[in-house]
């Protein structure tokens, strides 16, 4: 809308800046509240900034070995999860985009069907399955169940369908195998789509808490959101600590997002509607 609008551009800029601030406000607030003294977090009258900036909440939560371990274990798990998600779904995406084989149609329907199963309807029976497999309280129970994702596979496949056939025909004539073509032609070209799928997988893992709460009881494997959830129900009165913990728990995701934001925001265009 390049229009000769009656509303000046300056006003629009100011309004959008304000909306951005409102969107960021809760997050900024939790970071700042983490710097308040124990008695001050919810003191009346309400004050936005602390009287004295204290780092004690951040220092104390970082001294809790369960917290730091949960951060590290969750981060490691999330990276592993994202890597496996990319590997499993991208190879399937490539096969469905390029190869011809028996029962292709049938297998395609089999995979896509799983997209329409809501998580809640299989939550309990998934628990029974992993329990029978002896996977409770292992890293595998956190990582494996969510790796295969028809939605992610579909998204990568759409990207592969747009890669021109000409690129691989030369390689095929030279006698390169299908797997080699996948690793040497498709994977290197997948960077933008891998960033989106990878970050999506990372986020899903990092932010999950219901599944970890059900399957993990060993404190060595506690996940960060599970830690915060337990903290809130057990020590909810220590609000400064909870604020500091929440702020720190959001930090790795934020950093990752800021590094890759260009691709993520461009990815919204790809994923938007086509």
């Amino acid at each position: 809308m390049q229009k000769s609008s009656s509303i000046p551009k300056v006003l629009l800029t100011v309004i959008s800046g304000l909306v951005a601030l409102v969107a960021l406000f809760p997050l900024i607030w939790v970071v700042i509240a983490g710097f308040k003294g124990k008695a001050e977090v919810l003191a009346t009258p309400f004050r936005f900034f602390p009287k004295v900036w204290l780092a004690e909440n951040y220092a104390e939560i970082l001294k809790d070995p369960v917290f730091t371990k949960a951060m590290a274990v969750t981060f490691g798990g999330a990276v592993l999860f994202a890597a496996l998600t990319l590997f499993v779904n991208a190879s399937a995406a490539y096969v469905f985009a390029r190869l011809e084989f028996r029962f292709k149609r049938l297998l395609w329907v089999y995979v896509i069907m799983t997209m329409f199963v809501p998580a809640m309807s299989i939550l309990l029976t998934s628990f029974i399955v992993v329990n029978k497999l002896g996977m409770l309280d292992t890293l595998a129970v956190l990582v494996l169940p969510g790796v295969a994702s028809a939605g992610q596979m579909f998204f990568i496949r759409q990207f592969y369908l747009n890669i021109p056939l000409a690129l691989e025909e030369a390689a095929l004539i030279d006698g390169a195998g299908r797997f080699r073509i996948f690793t040497s032609i498709f994977v290197p070209m997948s960077f933008p789509v891998f960033v989106i799928v990878g970050i999506g997988a990372y986020l899903g893992y990092w932010n999950s808490f219901v599944w970890p709460t059900m399957t993990i009881t060993n404190p060595d494997l506690f996940q960060i959101m599970q830690y915060l959830y337990n903290f809130r129900s057990e020590r909810g009165s220590e609000m400064g600590l909870l604020m500091a913990g929440s702020a720190l728990a959001a930090a790795p995701t934020l950093i990752l997002f800021l590094i890759f934001q260009r691709y993520i925001i461009a990815g919204i265009k790809i994923s938007g509607l086509k």
Partner: peptide, 20 residues
């Protein structure tokens, strides 16, 4: 970027913030 940031925040952290 600013408005997208809340999207990546977990339900737990959002809940904690809003309870406050």
């Amino acid at each position: 970027t600013a408005i997208y940031i809340p999207t990546i925040i977990s339900g737990i952290v959002a809940s904690v913030i809003f309870v406050f």
